[in-house]
Simulated scan of single mutants.
Amino acid sequence: MRMRIRPARKDDDFQAIAQIYLTTWRATYAGLFDQAFLAGLTTDMWHPEKRWQQTVVAETDEGRIVGVCAYGASRTPTLANMGEVYSIYILPAFQHLGLGQQLMAKALAQLKRQYRTAFLWVLRDNVSAVRFYETLGFKLTGTTRDDHDCVEQVFIMQLI
């Protein structure tokens, strides 16, 4: 099956994209977040239509969106003047096919147009994500925050 990475469009199926977030959260964060918390999540919690101009998607030849990466200006005051990768999620059946690297490459290329540095937050205990970001060249900074009884840490990358 061939895939393509493209910018999101304002007429994309944002309910399907919200479902990617929900499905992937439940699969990825099982054991990291409380099960009751994950079970209580709904697609109404995500609003990808609000950021479609700062989103890239992975799509099958049949037009099914199976991955998403959102990015933009920093939402963290202490990391102002940097670009941020807000999220990257790929349906479990489509993981480990190189889509994550392709989505990140497109998002980082867009961020590079405006910023010299990009960062992202990742759960400290999400070992596979930590390895993925380190492979891409992100470096751990030591900045952390607590989120739902889990610790998130900042990884940063120079874009120049």
Results as ranks from 00 to 15, higher is better:
residue 135 T to H: 15
residue 128 S to I: 04
residue 63 G to P: 08
residue 137 G to W: 05
residue 109 A to G: 12
residue 133 Y to I: 08
residue 125 D to H: 13
residue 90 I to W: 00
residue 55 T to W: 03
residue 160 I to Y: 15
residue 142 G to Y: 08
residue 49 E to N: 08
residue 123 L to A: 07
residue 35 Q to A: 14
residue 80 A to R: 15
residue 84 E to Q: 14
residue 97 L to P: 02
residue 81 N to R: 08
residue 113 R to L: 15
residue 149 D to A: 11
residue 22 L to P: 06
residue 38 L to Q: 03
residue 131 R to N: 13
residue 96 H to T: 10
residue 150 C to Y: 01
residue 1 M to L: 11
residue 6 R to T: 04
residue 94 F to E: 07
residue 23 T to Q: 13
residue 100 G to A: 02
residue 79 L to W: 14
residue 143 T to W: 06
residue 25 W to M: 12
residue 128 S to V: 08
residue 104 M to W: 10
residue 29 Y to M: 01
residue 77 P to R: 09
residue 85 V to I: 15
residue 149 D to N: 11
residue 13 D to W: 03
residue 58 A to C: 06
residue 30 A to G: 04
residue 156 I to S: 15
residue 47 H to L: 00
residue 150 C to L: 05
residue 98 G to Q: 04
residue 91 L to I: 03
residue 67 G to A: 08
residue 1 M to Y: 09
residue 4 R to C: 06
residue 14 F to R: 06
residue 14 F to Y: 11
residue 35 Q to M: 02
residue 152 E to A: 09
residue 135 T to P: 00
residue 147 D to M: 12
residue 72 G to I: 11
residue 102 Q to N: 10
residue 142 G to L: 08
residue 158 Q to C: 15
residue 117 T to W: 01
residue 6 R to C: 10
residue 51 R to A: 04
residue 129 A to F: 02
residue 107 A to E: 09
residue 6 R to Y: 06
residue 88 I to S: 10
residue 100 G to K: 00
residue 108 L to N: 09
residue 99 L to A: 01
residue 84 E to D: 07
residue 151 V to K: 11
residue 52 W to C: 05
residue 49 E to T: 04
residue 43 T to L: 07
residue 85 V to S: 09
residue 78 T to C: 09
residue 79 L to E: 14
residue 5 I to R: 07
residue 43 T to P: 05
residue 78 T to Y: 04
residue 103 L to S: 02
residue 77 P to I: 06
residue 83 G to N: 05
residue 89 Y to H: 04
residue 145 R to N: 09
residue 98 G to I: 10
residue 79 L to P: 13
residue 32 L to T: 12
residue 112 K to H: 11
residue 107 A to L: 10
residue 133 Y to N: 05
residue 116 R to G: 14
residue 6 R to D: 05
residue 35 Q to G: 00
